[in-house]
Amino acid sequence: MKTQEELTEIVRDHFSDMGEIATLYVQVYESSLESLVGGVIFEDGRHYTFVYENEDLVYE
């Protein structure tokens, strides 16, 4: 089982391919040991929310 830090790094690596990240945040109250819920804001102003669970990243 991966730690929350490892899950965060996986998500950061994925989004870094889309541009320069200004902020990546995790909603700790919605996340667990198996899933990571949060959002990412890019330097150009784009903002996505995401759920990473079971090695699957869903964002909008």
Rank of each mutant, 00 (worst) to 15 (best):
M1A: 11
M1H: 12
M1P: 11
K2G: 05
K2I: 05
K2T: 05
K2W: 05
K2E: 03
K2V: 05
K2N: 05
K2L: 09
T3I: 05
T3H: 05
T3P: 05
T3R: 07
T3C: 06
T3N: 08
T3W: 05
Q4N: 05
Q4F: 10
Q4T: 06
Q4S: 06
E5I: 09
E5A: 14
E5D: 10
E5H: 11
E5V: 09
E5F: 11
E6T: 07
E6A: 08
E6D: 09
E6C: 07
L7R: 04
L7M: 08
L7P: 01
L7K: 04
L7G: 02
L7C: 04
L7Y: 04
L7D: 01
L7I: 12
T8K: 08
T8Q: 08
T8M: 12
T8N: 05
T8A: 09
T8R: 09
T8C: 09
T8G: 05
T8W: 08
E9Y: 09
E9C: 09
E9T: 11
E9V: 09
E9H: 11
E9N: 12
E9R: 14
I10M: 10
I10T: 08
I10R: 10
V11L: 07
V11E: 01
V11A: 05
V11I: 09
V11D: 01
V11W: 02
R12N: 05
R12A: 07
R12V: 06
R12Q: 05
R12M: 09
D13T: 14
D13G: 14
D13N: 13
D13P: 04
D13I: 14
H14Q: 09
H14L: 13
H14F: 15
H14A: 13
H14M: 15
F15G: 00
F15Y: 03
F15W: 03
F15E: 01
F15V: 02
F15L: 06
F15I: 03
F15C: 03
S16M: 11
S16I: 10
S16T: 10
S16D: 07
S16F: 06
S16G: 08
S16R: 13
S16P: 02
S16A: 12
D17I: 15
D17G: 14
D17P: 13
D17F: 15
D17W: 14
D17R: 15
D17Y: 15
D17M: 15
M18P: 01
M18C: 08
M18Y: 08
M18I: 08
M18L: 10
G19I: 02
G19K: 02
G19Y: 03
G19L: 02
G19R: 02
G19Q: 02
G19A: 04
G19V: 02
E20T: 14
E20I: 13
E20N: 14
E20S: 12
E20M: 12
E20D: 11
I21T: 02
I21C: 03
I21Y: 02
I21W: 03
I21A: 01
I21L: 06
A22T: 10
A22V: 13
A22D: 06
A22Q: 12
A22N: 08
A22R: 15
T23Q: 10
T23P: 01
T23H: 11
T23I: 11
T23V: 13
T23C: 12
T23R: 11
T23D: 07
L24N: 00
L24E: 00
L24R: 00
L24Q: 01
L24I: 11
L24T: 03
L24M: 09
Y25A: 03
Y25D: 03
Y25T: 05
Y25Q: 04
Y25K: 03
V26S: 04
V26H: 03
V26I: 14
V26D: 01
V26P: 01
V26A: 04
V26G: 03
V26M: 04
V26L: 07
Q27F: 12
Q27W: 10
Q27N: 13
Q27Y: 13
V28D: 07
V28Q: 13
V28W: 11
V28K: 15
V28A: 13
V28S: 12
V28N: 10
Y29Q: 06
Y29T: 06
Y29L: 06
Y29M: 06
Y29P: 05
Y29V: 06
E30S: 14
E30Y: 07
E30Q: 10
E30D: 14
E30H: 13
E30M: 12
E30I: 15
S31F: 09
S31K: 11
S31A: 14
S31D: 08
S31T: 08
S31P: 12
S31M: 11
S31H: 12
S32I: 11
S32W: 09
S32M: 13
S32K: 11
S32P: 07
S32V: 10
L33F: 10
L33D: 09
L33E: 10
L33H: 14
L33P: 13
E34C: 09
E34L: 11
E34F: 08
E34S: 14
E34D: 08
E34P: 14
S35G: 06
S35H: 12
S35C: 09
S35P: 04
S35M: 12
S35Y: 15
S35E: 06
S35W: 11
L36M: 09
L36I: 12
L36K: 00
L36D: 00
L36Q: 01
V37W: 11
V37S: 09
V37L: 08
V37G: 06
V37Y: 11
V37P: 00
G38L: 03
G38V: 03
G38T: 02
G38R: 00
G38D: 01
G38C: 03
G38K: 00
G38Y: 03
G39N: 07
V40R: 00
V40P: 00
V40S: 00
V40N: 00
V40T: 03
V40K: 00
V40M: 02
V40G: 00
V40C: 05
V40F: 02
I41G: 03
I41E: 05
I41D: 03
I41S: 04
I41N: 03
I41P: 00
I41W: 08
F42H: 00
F42Q: 00
F42G: 00
F42A: 00
E43G: 10
E43H: 14
E43T: 15
E43M: 15
E43V: 14
E43F: 13
E43S: 15
D44H: 02
D44A: 02
D44N: 06
D44K: 01
D44S: 04
D44F: 02
D44R: 02
D44V: 02
G45Y: 03
G45V: 01
G45E: 04
G45F: 04
G45A: 04
G45H: 04
G45W: 03
G45L: 04
G45P: 01
G45Q: 04
G45C: 05
R46S: 07
R46F: 03
R46P: 03
R46L: 05
R46G: 04
R46M: 05
H47C: 07
H47T: 06
H47M: 07
H47V: 07
H47I: 07
H47D: 02
H47R: 08
H47Y: 07
Y48S: 00
Y48R: 00
Y48F: 11
Y48H: 02
Y48N: 01
Y48M: 06
Y48C: 03
Y48A: 02
Y48W: 08
Y48V: 05
Y48Q: 01
Y48E: 00
T49R: 10
T49E: 04
T49N: 06
T49A: 07
T49V: 08
T49F: 08
T49M: 08
T49K: 13
F50P: 00
F50E: 00
V51H: 12
V51C: 10
V51N: 07
V51F: 09
Y52P: 00
Y52Q: 02
Y52M: 06
E53K: 15
E53S: 15
E53I: 15
E53Y: 13
N54A: 10
N54R: 11
N54P: 05
N54V: 05
N54D: 08
N54S: 09
E55D: 13
E55Y: 11
E55P: 06
E55M: 12
E55T: 10
E55I: 05
E55L: 09
E55G: 11
D56H: 15
D56F: 15
D56M: 15
D56N: 15
D56Y: 15
D56K: 15
L57G: 02
L57S: 02
L57H: 02
L57Q: 01
L57R: 01
V58M: 10
V58C: 11
V58G: 05
V58Y: 13
Y59P: 03
Y59N: 02
Y59V: 10
Y59Q: 04
Y59C: 06
Y59D: 03
E60P: 03
E60Y: 14
E60S: 15
E60Q: 14
E60R: 15
E60H: 14
E60L: 11
